[in-house]
């Protein structure tokens, strides 16, 4: 694992200088008046409201917010796993209706099929159009990209949590997605593995640039990975309503960014303040 992360570093650095060589498969996403209410009548409660936002093609967008603020709901609406109560999500120029083949999802848990090998699990992500031969080659390439080529024949329970999460990432990439949706994909990992996974994600994004929507509650992770950060939360005075976008931040600097930079530290405390964490 260590070997992979460190050996892949120079490649990532090189490609981020020649920024985003190929954006052919990346797609822009736009949210128009998105609202999601659960339940009906008296028990109805709105989770998200008035989400109007554009994500550029190839952009890495982090979605920050306190837990329960509808971050995952936003992501699920983009994937078509959940239907908004009002408004639309557009990918490219067409709206999302039902599960969208242009998206790929990596969940907080790996969610691999325990009876399949990692290889077979990654293959589940392949688009329907893929031929058997191309699919096999692609799975092999992705397993190599996430450093699991030696574990292709292992079952998920035979590998560590971080490895399973990497397989889950490879499965999402196998879809060749226009939009990659990551729902706190590193949240359940230990700190060291998380940093390695973040680096891996940057490498992957450099190798296969796609639009990335990353839900996280980790401010540092957002600052490290994203081009822009949106903060979801409740507006003061409208706490009874659902969460909406309360802040948008453009993160300066090329990736990989210096984790100790003073500018990022300032942004960090400012973002934490937006999230309702006082102090520092």
């Amino acid at each position: 694992m260590t070997a992979l992360a460190s050996s892949a570093r120079p490649a990532a650095a090189a490609s981020s200088q020649a920024r985003r060589p190929d954006l052919s498969s990346a797609l822009p996403v736009s949210f128009r008046g998105l609202r999601r209410t659960f339940g009906t009548g008296g028990s109805a409660h709105t989770v998200l409201r008035d989400i109007d936002f554009e994500v550029e093609r190839g952009e890495v967008l982090a979605i920050l917010g306190p837990s329960g603020c509808g971050k995952s709901t936003l992501l699920r609406a983009t994937a078509g796993l959940d239907a908004p109560s009002a408004g639309t999500v557009n990918i490219g120029t067409t709206p999302v209706q039902g599960i969208d083949p242009r998206c790929a999802f990596a969940f907080q848990e790996p969610r691999l099929l325990p009876w399949h090998t990692l290889q077979a699990n990654v293959a589940i992500g392949l688009p329907k159009s893929a031929s058997a031969k191309d699919g096999k080659a692609k799975v092999a390439r992705l397993l190599e990209l996430v450093g699991l080529d030696k574990f292709a024949k292992h079952r998920p329970r035979e590998v560590s949590g971080g490895m399973a999460q990497r397989a889950s990432l490879a499965r999402a990439l196998a879809r060749n997605p226009g939009v990659l949706l990551l729902d706190e994909p590193f949240g359940a990992l230990d700190a060291l593995t998380r940093i390695k996974m973040q680096d891996l994600l940057l490498d992957i994004h450099a190798a296969e640039p796609t639009t990335v929507l990353l839900v996280t509650h980790d401010v540092d992770e957002a600052l490290q990975l994203a081009d822009r950060i949106v903060v979801l939360g409740k507006e003061t005075g409208r706490e009874g309503d659902g969460a909406t976008i309360v802040r948008t931040v453009v993160v300066p600097g090329e990736r990989p960014r210096d984790r100790g930079s003073a500018e990022l530290a300032r942004m960090r405390s400012s973002l934490l303040e937006s999230l309702g964490v006082e102090g520092n």
Binding site: L81, I99, F105, F107, E109, R111, I124
Partner: peptide
């Protein structure tokens, strides 16, 4: 969660039944 993951990757109906 597994079923949802299957659906997210385009599995449905008989294919979802036999795969997941």
């Amino acid at each position: 969660n597994l079923v949802e993951a299957g659906r997210a990757f385009g599995l449905k109906g008989l294919k979802l039944l036999t795969t997941v």
